[in-house]
């Protein structure tokens, strides 16, 4: 990744993430989250994981966040004052948990080893393609077929459950 691209991405993605939690308007907050997701997709592309990048855009930015926006708009959460909670413990807990996470990352030294120049150069490029992912995922010699199918069954059960619960309330 060139330094210019890195700085653009870093500023936009971190800025959008900060905006997402600081803005009082829920619609803008959701849009900031979409921007963060798109930046993550670009990160995936720079790591030559093109399939994951495309899926990130289609699933997260294209489907899940649209659902979020639908809910926000239909429940009419637009009024910013409605969201302000007073005397809540949440900011205290959030700050302390964030501090603990930072301490853990510092103690594990993972913050300082990110810069290793070897990690970027040795990414095997064809590994992120649709073909390589498909062939690895469905290869009987690899251990990933069973978890993959279990996940899809889980998703199917969740879909059927959601439909049944929605039908019951009508």
């Amino acid at each position: 990744m060139s330094p210019l691209l890195f700085w653009i991405l870093a500023v936009v993605s971190v800025g959008a993430a900060v905006l997402m939690i600081t803005t009082k308007n829920p619609v803008r907050s959701a849009l900031a989250l979409v921007t963060t997701f798109l930046c993550v997709a670009v990160y995936y592309i720079t790591l030559s994981a093109q399939f994951i990048a495309a899926v990130q855009v289609i699933v997260y930015a294209g489907a899940i966040m649209v659902l979020f926006l639908f809910v926000i708009m239909l429940l009419n959460l637009g009024a910013p004052q409605a969201l302000e909670e007073k005397g809540s413990l949440q900011p205290v807990i959030a700050w302390s948990l964030g501090g603990i996470l930072l301490l853990t990352l510092t103690a594990a030294r993972s913050l300082f080893t990110l810069n290793s120049p070897q990690a970027g150069a040795n990414v095997y490029e064809p590994l992120g393609t649709v073909r390589a992912i498909g062939l690895n995922l469905f290869d009987p010699a690899q251990p990933w077929l069973f978890p993959f199918e279990m996940t899809s069954i889980l998703l199917l059960v969740a879909t059927v459950g959601a439909i049944i619960m929605a039908k019951r309330q009508v």
Binding site: L31, Q50, F51, A54, A61, G62, V66, M73, T129, R131
Partner: peptide, 25 residues
């Protein structure tokens, strides 16, 4: 001509909802 070309087009077309829904809201 990337190897996720069709997925890219589908992804962009799934993002096009935003322009319309934001305009409407």
């Amino acid at each position: 001509d990337v190897n996720v070309g069709l997925l890219y087009i589908l992804g962009i077309s799934s993002l096009q909802v935003y322009g319309i829904i934001l305009a409407g809201w």
